[in-house]
């Protein structure tokens, strides 16, 4: 099932299928290794439920919810 990253639950894992962002946000996301085929797991959210922290290739990355909207994930 493919869903936007924002809708993923804490500790849910999946594989990135598409990154719809372009321009600066797209570059920044891809530079950090969020490209199609990469496996990710949601690690948690900040105290105010935003941004989201995710585990990717063994490190932790943060994104705002409205940025996670651009990333489509095939969830396990």
């Amino acid at each position: 099932m493919r869903i936007p990253m924002r809708q993923m639950q804490d500790n849910q894992s999946g594989t990135i299928r598409a990154v719809r962002a372009d321009g600066e946000l797209g570059r920044r996301i891809r530079d950090m290794g969020l490209v199609p085929g990469t496996e990710i797991r949601i690690q948690g959210r900040a105290p105010l439920y935003d941004p989201v922290a995710l585990r990717v290739m063994g490190f932790t990355l943060t994104l705002r919810n409205n940025e996670a909207d651009f990333i489509e994930v095939e969830v396990d």
């Binding site: 600066e24 946000l25 920044r28 996301i29 941004p51 490190f59 932790t60 990355l61 705002r64 940025e67």
Partner: peptide
């Protein structure tokens, strides 16, 4: 507003 793509280092 702009992107917040940041690493949380160990």
């Amino acid at each position: 507003s702009t992107p917040f793509v940041m690493e949380l280092p160990p």
